[in-house]
Design a protein around this nucleic acid. Structure first.
Length: 796
DNA sequence: CTAGGGTTAG
């Protein structure tokens, strides 16, 4: 294996696997290039075998400094290595090249060969312990330091401070720091940056102040760490102060400081200030570009982010590195630019960037965002090494793409691994519970979370809010939202979306202004929630208002989701021509979802020509889009083109596609009850049909008293679908809900496809007859039926 | 031959 820069980067993330593979150290550093070197080196060694040890060690040092570890090892074994100096060289070589376990093993071997480690050895060994997350070894080393009296060495103690912070034991680091008799600037810097590594920016800044109070002047290292402290805490005021301090002290030409400042501004949402700084940097390096690209991504400006790819080559003649690609992928996701994403993947392969755990995880995310869980799974299954974040991404990808069973299965698998699920894991599985398993199991997860350390975590509480909303319990969702201790922008996005999917558009907009009152800045997803709400509730004017303001007032680029909502709005207004031209003017490629929106609109307005045209577009992207076939065939049925209905039906059969079986579910305390159309499998079938019969008769009576007789349509005779619509799954489920739940409580039914017109009408009447609130959640919206009215105001 | 720094996945 060549020890090149890119490989070191790889090994940096793969130290665990490297150590666990137990490859003999000497065979691990083979490469063709260093074979030549080694031949040359052996010759040198043989010729100089009797020459002074100074020469031998200086050759060893040359190997180490040039990264030729294999040569270094073979030379090391040949020469006399009874002094600490030679060992220290080797250990330094390993540490500087990311071979932390090798460094530790050499340190152990050094002890067993009777060479005492000295004050130069320990800083390296301690660094290796921190970097390889080996707490056990680190503590052993610390204990040893007392015995040999090195526990007061300033360099050693400074290393200990960083090590403990890297391992997450800040208190230990603080203890070492406090007990130091003599501290220098590095001691302070180690602690200040240590707080940042554990995510405690506030303590970091407190120490930064404390240090200056004591009259110690910060240097560029102090500055960089404090700036990072500001960015992780979003403390832009403190960041600006440090910025001016930096300028005053004359640090301003330092590209690292400039890059941290740039990053701080973009993390605080001030991408404009980040940009200004970026333009001041000269010459710029890849890191600065990466930070800028990341800033654009973070601030929902994917177009600007992608534009950097050309600019960095054109302006500064720089090529993207792994991190550039990792930062670019989410902007592809934001834009729905599948082909760009794929080409980045291809570029990574050609450049030899893979395998790389961060990049692969980012690819899983982006394929997940593109709605390609299979591609994501392909990457996941073949990864050499997976971290918790990788698992989280895969679980989230499954869940977000409706592969809920897969998500839950993966979660179970994760529980059997040595990795411990974290807040993100919980937040990723909760939605899967809401979709597949039901409210009952969702409540279990809720109970589990309440008792866990995550019970105040807004990220998880957000996902519970959404879960309850998805399960039909908007009230519970609201209660949890109200109790989130620190509501972030996602909390608001979630509750706005919760009201959106229940069809309460007005409330969504009210929540948005409440959020603005609390000075929470809206982001990309805020507008996804808002526009979704407008489209579901048919608030056309408001929708356009938000669409325009997101660009002009908030400088947020439109993504595919926003375009989809606008299309829904246009479609709902029946403005099919405008919808068609809107797709053409979109700066990003239309997805099947986008075309689907137009297809629904053409179907609703019975425009067969357009529907056929749109269907062609969809099949070009997704030849197996079942929904498209079904919609088309329903449209043909509506206008009585039965030959075409048959044609589509046989086309689907040919391609092995099954129509999604519409099913409705009702949950009771112990069980989820499923119903399909004309279902007779339920244990209480007789009762259900009996009750439904009574209700249907009542509906008929009411209709003939104050309604005109239904129009006779010859189509109905031919349409097999309407023949048995009295026993559609929704009605069966509703009836079961009525007889199996407490009187006075709402009946909650959920359905995986849209609810049909007949059922919608019937349930309105049932809500009058039974005086019960009935909530029917279909694949798009929750209908709240009460006193003969529906919250959707009959548009869905 | 000595410790301390920037960009990265949810």
């Amino acid at each position: 294996m060549a020890i090149t820069l890119s490989h070191c980067n790889y090994y940096h993330h793969h130290q665990h696997s490297l150590a666990s593979r137990k490859v003999p150290t000497t065979t691990r550093f083979n490469d063709s290039k260093s074979k030549q070197d080694s031949t040359a080196a052996s010759a040198v060694v043989n010729n100089n075998l009797k020459k002074s040890r100074t020469l031998q060690t200086s050759i060893l040092r040359t190997h180490i400094d040039s990264g030729h570890l294999r040569d270094a090892i073979s030379l090391f074994e040949k020469i006399n290595h009874s002094d600490a100096y030679t060992w220290n060289l080797m250990i330094r070589g390993f540490v500087n090249n990311g071979f932390f376990w090798e460094a530790i093993s050499f340190y152990r071997r050094m002890g067993s060969e009777g060479v005492p480690a000295d004050n130069f050895t320990y800083p390296f060994v301690i660094k290796a312990c921190g970097a390889s997350f080996s707490l056990e070894e680190g503590e052993k080393v610390h204990g040893k330091l007392f015995k040999i009296g090195l526990d007061s060495d300033i360099c050693v103690c400074n290393s200990l401070i960083s090590m403990y912070c890297k391992l997450g034991f800040v208190q230990c680091a603080e203890k070492v720091f406090e007990e130091m008799l003599v501290k220098d600037l590095v001691s302070w810097n180690s602690l200040i940056s240590g707080y940042v590594t554990v995510g405690d920016g506030r303590s970091s800044l407190a120490r930064f102040l404390e240090m200056q109070m004591l009259g110690i002047k910060p240097d560029r290292f102090t500055m960089i760490s404090s700036i990072n402290a500001c960015s992780i805490e979003c403390l832009i005021r403190n960041g600006k102060e440090i910025h001016s301090q930096v300028v005053k002290c004359g640090f301003e030409l330092d590209i690292m400081i400039q890059t941290s400042l740039l990053d701080m501004y973009s993390k605080c949402g001030r991408v404009d200030l980040a940009e200004r700084l970026f333009h001041e940097i000269s010459p710029r390096n890849v890191v600065a570009w990466n930070a800028m690209i990341g800033g654009y991504v973070l601030n929902s400006r994917p177009l600007d982010s992608l534009a950097c790819l050309r600019k960095m080559k054109k302006d500064d003649n720089l090529n993207p590195d792994v991190i550039t690609l990792i930062n670019l992928l989410p902007s592809c996701a934001q834009l729905g630019a599948f082909l760009v994403g794929k080409s980045i993947h291809g570029y990574a392969i050609r450049k030899g960037f893979l395998p790389h755990i961060f990049l692969e995880t980012a690819l899983i995310d982006v394929y997940g965002a593109f709605g390609k869980p299979k591609l994501a799974e392909y990457i996941f299954d073949r990864m050499a090494e997976k971290g918790l974040v990788t698992w989280n991404s895969m679980i989230a990808t499954f869940a977000q793409n409706g592969w809920n069973k897969e998500a839950l299965k993966l979660f179970q698998e994760l529980l059997n691994k040595p990795l411990i699920p974290d807040a993100i894991t919980m937040a990723s599985v909760v939605p899967a519970y809401s979709e597949v398993s039901s409210l009952r199991e969702g409540k279990q997860i809720h109970g589990y979370i309440s008792k866990s350390e995550h019970n105040k975590n807004s990220y998880i509480l957000n996902s519970l809010v959404y879960m309850y909303a998805k399960c039909g319990e908007l009230q519970t969702a609201r209660e949890i939202f109200d109790e989130i201790p620190r509501r972030d922008v996602s909390s608001w996005n979630t509750i706005i979306m919760a009201y959106a999917i229940h069809g309460f558009g007005k409330e969504s907009i009210e929540l948005f202004s409440k959020m603005r009152d609390q000075s929470i800045e809206p982001n990309y997803n805020t507008f996804v929630s808002l526009l979704t709400s407008c489209s579901i509730s048919g608030m056309v004017d408001e929708g356009w208002k938000f669409y325009n303001s997101m660009k002009t007032d908030y400088n947020i680029d439109c993504g595919i989701e926003h375009y989809g909502c606008i299309l829904d709005l246009l479609g709902r207004a029946g403005d099919l021509d405008r919808a068609k031209s809107f797709i053409k003017t979109m700066p990003i490629a239309a997805t099947a979802r986008i075309w689907g929106s137009l297809l629904t609109a053409s179907k609703n307005h019975r425009n067969i020509e357009l529907a056929e045209l749109v269907a062609e577009h969809i099949f070009r992207v997704e030849h197996d889009n079942t929904g498209c076939y079904v919609l088309l065939s329903n449209l043909y049925a509506e206008v009585g083109r039965w030959d075409d209905v048959e044609r589509i039906k046989s086309l689907m059969e040919q391609r092995g596609l099954d129509k999604t079986v519409g099913c409705s579910i009702v949950e009771t305390k112990y069980k989820t009850h499923r119903f399909i159309n004309d279902d007779r499998s339920h244990i209480q079938t007789d009762m259900i049909y009996h009750v439904l019969g009574i209700l249907l008769r009542k509906i008929e009576e009411n209709r003939s008293t104050h309604c005109s007789i239904t129009k006779f349509r010859p189509i109905d005779l031919k349409n097999k679908r309407s023949k048995c619509s009295d026993y559609h799954s929704v009605r069966l489920a509703t009836c079961f809900g009525l007889i199996s739940t407490k009187v006075g409580s709402p009946v909650v039914v959920r359905k995986n496809t849209r609810v049909c017109k007949d059922c919608h009408g019937a349930i309105k009447k049932i809500s009058v007859i039974t005086k019960r609130e009935i909530i029917v959640g279909d694949s798009k919206v929750f209908h709240h039926f009460r006193d003969g009215n529906c919250s959707c105001r009959d548009y869905w």
